[in-house]
Design a protein around this nucleic acid. Structure first.
Lengths: 231, 231
DNA sequence: ACGACTTTGTGCGCACGTTCACAAGCGCCT
DNA sequence: AGGCGCTTGTGAACGTGCGCACAAAGTCGT
């Protein structure tokens, strides 16, 4: 009884991470009134290999038509369903500083079923402000809110020093998905997912490659192999 | 002449992506006055497996002492050097909207040698504003700036519709590393690195796993295998 | 109705990343 | 001085992901 490599509907993580990209490319095509698309075209639009695209889509089912391609509208629906975008996801943002402001006002949230339902901050000078149509509430209200409305996703936009405490409170309030913008590692119990977005880390990775390029240019301008695109 | 698996100093991408995390954990330890750390402790702080940590660090050199651990101060220096943080990296931000504002004021930039030297926007109502001590300049100035001061890293914080155009201008101005916050795929010539930060994508990945968890709770609350932490 | 053409879905080999487990090495204590 | 305990560094096995290349399958034209 070795665990199955791909259990029913076991979609690889790498594929899941690319589905949003495909979805966006498909939406753009739909907006331009295009009804059908080949894997080659869609792959180019999404910036991936066409074989990879086909294999990714094959995990959702056989939704393509050989010799023709994929129905844009239909595929949008299927990917959206797979990602759970057919339902509303209540989102709470904690930490209404510079970044929290920007996130609260980010239009990309609403477009995909993500609804910002609450804003929190510990700073009493911020509490009470109205940001993006919502009043900022004290962090202590989080526990109370958990009783009335279930929050699906918690966004941590606080300084690193407060992040773990905030995260613990979110988890205690029943949140099982956390998006962390604070530059630190969050530890959570099993069953809770954390994804990290870290500007500083991204810059440092770019700096590493930039330095590499500078060294390459100095020592061997006519070396083989060009620079690789960072994924 | 098969290409070498690991050419001199060929640090795997996965390792490079983790070095900033290690660096941050080490800095925190240094701030607390801790002089030495074992791979086990550091791995826990960084949220990774200790064997992975050791293998990662081994790519930089043999900087540990068996039976003792790693010297915190020394390791901070080595990782910083490897990532190119000993030099200053001039950064330009294009698109001074909600997000651009937050980025321009983000303290995490300066701390690691990233210096925001210029802000750009196409919107004439924003141009001329002073944000984080810098005057917002019209996008047309980008070409002129390229002559006087080399920009190492360009940050794209514009709407998706303008992102490719802005990116092209950055590349034309000599920028070879781009951090893209716009929800779209950027195409660049060889030798230019692009890294993407996409809030919407991250939320959708969380939503996928959240949906999975909901389904699991419904059909089989006493199934084997708990939820996996999203990496 | 049939053949040629197009495009999907996938089997297979390869490279990469991760983890285990252990030998090699270092310091400390007696 | 020598052994003992601890920790690093790494060989090897394993799992995952990627891309080529091709068979299967459908469409279009005649």
């Amino acid at each position: 009884m070795t665990h199955d490599p791909v259990t029913p509907r076991g979609i690889p993580d790498a594929t899941v991470a690319r589905l949003p990209v495909y979805l966006r490319a498909l939406s753009a095509l739909a907006d331009r009134g295009i009804a059908s698309v080949s894997s080659e075209e869609l792959a180019t639009a999404a910036g991936v290999n066409s074989a990879k695209l086909r294999k990714d889509l094959s995990h959702l089912g056989s939704y393509g038509v050989r010799g023709v391609g994929y129905d844009v509208e239909f595929l949008v629906h299927q990917i959206g369903r797979e990602l759970g975008l057919t339902q509303d996801w209540p989102v709470a943002i904690v930490g209404i500083g510079n970044l929290g402001h920007a996130l609260a006002g980010y239009a990309g949230f609403a477009s995909k079923g993500f609804r910002v339902v609450a804003l929190f901050d510990v700073d009493s000078t911020v509490v009470g402000d109205v940001v993006a149509g919502l009043r900022v509430r004290p962090l202590a209200d989080l526990a109370a809110l958990a009783g009335t409305e279930q929050i699906a996703i918690g966004v941590v936009a606080t300084p690193a020093a407060n992040a773990q405490d905030v995260c613990d409170r979110l988890v205690a309030a029943g949140v099982r998905s956390v998006l962390n913008f604070a530059p630190c590692v969050l530890s959570v119990p099993d069953g809770v997912d954390v994804r990290k977005v870290d500007l500083s880390t991204e810059l440092q990775i770019l700096a590493f490659h930039e330095q590499r390029k500078a060294v390459r240019d100095l020592v061997g301008p006519l070396d083989e192999l060009g620079a690789r695109v960072a994924r």
